[in-house]
Amino acid sequence: MKIKILSIVIILMLSGCRDDKKAENQIDDKTQRVEISTKKNTKETFKKIDKNIVKKLNDTISSKNLKTEEEIMNAYKPKDSYTEGNYTYTISKNDLGNDSQEIILVEDDLLDDSLLAKKTIMIVKKENSILKVVSIKENYKCRQNRGHQEWSAELCN
């Protein structure tokens, strides 16, 4: 009997750990929000950053001769030097193939009364040995009692 129960628990745990890498993407042009569904019943919304800002960043990449994805993210969102406490600034990368990288910046424990964390996702592509930003999107997590606690394009109260 114990073996049957243990087997059922293991099967349930393994079936719940499934991570579907094929995300469904939907873009709502009116609100400039992007929804990405990476798991069943889990949606993360993003605020899409204006193309003019992306163009200015690409001009900065050229003028300052930025060579790495980290330098580019730091040019767009520099680490906050005025924070206190447990502020973290974490950059990670995912290879998307076709000379493209997804650069993810998570700033956590922000010095803000309503905003707890901010996530910025940048798609960078190498063209003729030069890095170019293709798109930028961001979302937010609010502090307790100041709005949503999950990642969302909705601003905090």
Rank of each mutant, 00 (worst) to 15 (best):
N98P: 03
L111S: 10
I104H: 05
D109A: 12
T38N: 11
N52A: 08
L66V: 08
K39Y: 11
I103A: 01
K55A: 15
K64E: 15
Q101R: 12
V106S: 01
V54E: 03
I121F: 04
K48H: 10
Y89M: 06
L116V: 08
S100V: 06
A117E: 01
P78T: 08
E69L: 03
K67F: 06
K67W: 07
S81N: 11
S37F: 07
T60A: 05
M73G: 02
S114E: 14
L110D: 01
V106L: 02
E70T: 14
D109F: 07
T38V: 14
K39H: 13
E102L: 10
I36W: 12
E70N: 12
N58T: 09
I121V: 15
S37T: 15
N65K: 14
L116Q: 12
Y89C: 06
S114H: 14
K118E: 06
S63A: 15
L105Q: 00
K51G: 10
N86H: 07
K43M: 05
I61G: 00
T88H: 07
N86M: 08
N98H: 06
P78G: 07
P78A: 08
T42L: 14
I49N: 00
K39P: 09
Y82P: 05
K67N: 10
S63W: 05
E107K: 02
K77C: 06
S62D: 11
D108L: 04
Y87N: 03
